[in-house]
């Protein structure tokens, strides 16, 4: 969740910078200020189609100042470090290898359960629920505490609402209970398969593979 917010804010900043620069150059290059009769303030950049994008004079305006090069190098370093961190945050795995389990009443014991064991138990528990064709469950990193993320495929005519209730009361409840965890929120993505049409009477828009077709 936190990564989503950071990504969206930074993408918005990058987009705003690009859009602003592009519009500024376009407005100057197409001479929109004169055509629309707008009088930009004196300090407004790029107002005339006859001026260069970045003139020699404006490029070297502050080069003589003592603060210029430290500022440029410092700013670029911050930008490089920041984008490197941003990129690493995208490449980092979201999966967890194990989960900490509370051990109330036992001092000095720290217990971790393998994520794979928990995932397999939950997958098996979900696959035996009614109308479930296939289930994949992963334990993922999230701010605060880990979360479960599941992808479940239901057999034709399966009931998604009932699946959610069965999953909550069955596999997830069992996992919470047996691990003694206070919370382990789960997100499920549910797909439903279609019965193969007995006769060709459904005209289906943009039909792809069974269970994977998208509508619209």
């Amino acid at each position: 969740m936190r990564r989503t917010v950071v990504n969206r804010v930074l993408l918005g900043v990058a987009g705003a910078v690009l859009l602003g620069a592009g519009v500024l150059v376009l407005a100057g290059g197409l001479d929109l200020y004169r055509r629309l009769g707008v009088d930009p303030p004196r300090w407004w950049p790029l107002t005339s189609p006859d001026q260069p994008v970045v003139s020699e004079r404006s490029r070297v305006r502050w080069v003589a100042s003592s603060w210029w090069w430290p500022t440029v190098i410092g700013g670029l370093s911050v930008l490089v470090a920041g984008t490197a961190w941003w990129l690493v945050a995208q490449l980092r795995r979201t999966g967890l290898s194990s989960i900490a389990v509370p051990t109330p009443g036992v001092g000095g014991l720290r217990l971790r359960v393998s994520a794979r064991a928990l995932e397999e138990a939950l997958e098996r528990g979900t696959e035996v629920l009614p109308e479930v064709d296939r289930a994949v469950v992963r334990l993922v990193r999230a701010p605060g505490h880990p979360r479960l993320r599941g992808a479940v495929r239901l057999t034709p005519g399966g009931d998604p609402a009932a699946l959610v209730e069965h999953f909550e009361d069955g596999p997830r409840g069992d996992a919470l209970h047996s691990l003694g965890l206070a919370e382990l929120p789960a997100e499920l993505r549910v797909r439903v398969l279609q019965e193969a049409p007995a006769e060709r009477r459904h005209v289906w828009p943009r039909r792809r593979r069974r269970g994977r077709s998208r509508v619209e």
Binding site: E165, E168, R172, R191, S213, R214
Partner: peptide, 19 residues
């Protein structure tokens, strides 16, 4: 429902209706 949130594929709803 409880601590489980879920989302369903739009195509899946189409499959249910078609069936």
């Amino acid at each position: 429902y409880g601590g489980t949130s879920a989302a369903v594929d739009r195509a899946g709803i189409g499959h249910l209706l078609a069936d």
